[in-house]
Simulated assay, not measured.
Amino acid sequence: MKIDFSKYEDGLVPAIIQDASTKNVLMLGFMNAEAYEKTLSTNKVTFYSRSKQRLWTKGEETKNYLILDSIKSDCDNDSLLIQVQPQGPTCHKGTDTCWGERNRPNFGFLSTLEEIIEDRWNNKETADSYVASLFRKGINKVAQKVGEEAVEVVIESKDDNDHLFLNESADLLFHIMVLLQAKGFHLRDVENTLIARHK
């Protein structure tokens, strides 16, 4: 891979840091040729710090290293996308990302729904909602609902009404997510299980 470090007067190229697993953007730094070579040789992401005027390995003080997974350059060879396995919070302020966001897997709307279900779990004694009422009834009731929804999916799969089939599938997925929360698990745990099987 040929990187055009000469394009900018300071010899630095922007390096976007992305979690290799969650695909969340963690931070932006800058690299010169020496920082790039050190990153490759140590497997720990190293930047050129403009404030310190020296090479700086992320985590050299906190041990929150960014372990290198892969590096790609863009179409003009003047910026980098670096995928990493973070060894702790990335931001110097202690947050997962430099934008103050949590570095969790993002399953789109399912992640939003999971946060709502988690909130109902944490407030199950006071929240006035269907999910909180399920949690109050206990694990057996939640598991029973999953079984009922699974049977309804099977029944609808044998007919030609796609609308009903998709609605019952949504009900099943929703109740599985409720059951996962009741058991102390998340979608990422199911994803990790599938990844392990794939390997």
Rank of each mutant, 00 (worst) to 15 (best):
L110A: 14
E152I: 06
V178L: 10
Y36W: 09
P14V: 05
P89E: 10
L40W: 01
I117N: 03
L66A: 02
A33P: 06
Q181T: 10
I82A: 07
L40E: 03
N43P: 01
E191K: 14
V25S: 00
V45R: 01
L173K: 13
T22V: 03
K141L: 13
N103G: 02
L179F: 14
K158L: 09
K145M: 13
I176L: 09
Y48C: 08
Y130F: 13
I116N: 06
T42C: 00
E191W: 13
E125R: 15
N122F: 12
N64I: 02
N122L: 12
F47D: 01
V13P: 03
L134T: 06
E115F: 01
T46M: 00
F135I: 03
K7N: 02
F5M: 02
R102F: 12
E60D: 06
V25C: 01
C98W: 04
K63C: 01
Y130W: 12
V142G: 02
S21Q: 05
Y130M: 12
H92V: 05
L26I: 07
E114S: 10
G88I: 04
A127V: 07
L166A: 05
H92R: 07
S49T: 12
L173C: 14
I117K: 00
C98N: 09
D74M: 14
S79T: 00
Y36D: 01
L55T: 11
K44A: 02
L68R: 00
L81G: 06
G184A: 09
K183H: 14
N122K: 15
K137N: 09
T39G: 07
K7P: 00
V131F: 11
R136D: 05
V142N: 02
I71P: 09
E148K: 10
N24D: 11
L26Q: 08
L12H: 12
I195S: 11
T95I: 11
R104C: 07
F47S: 11
H198L: 08
I117P: 06
I16D: 02
F109R: 09
N192P: 02
M27Q: 06
Q18D: 13
D19W: 00
P89M: 06
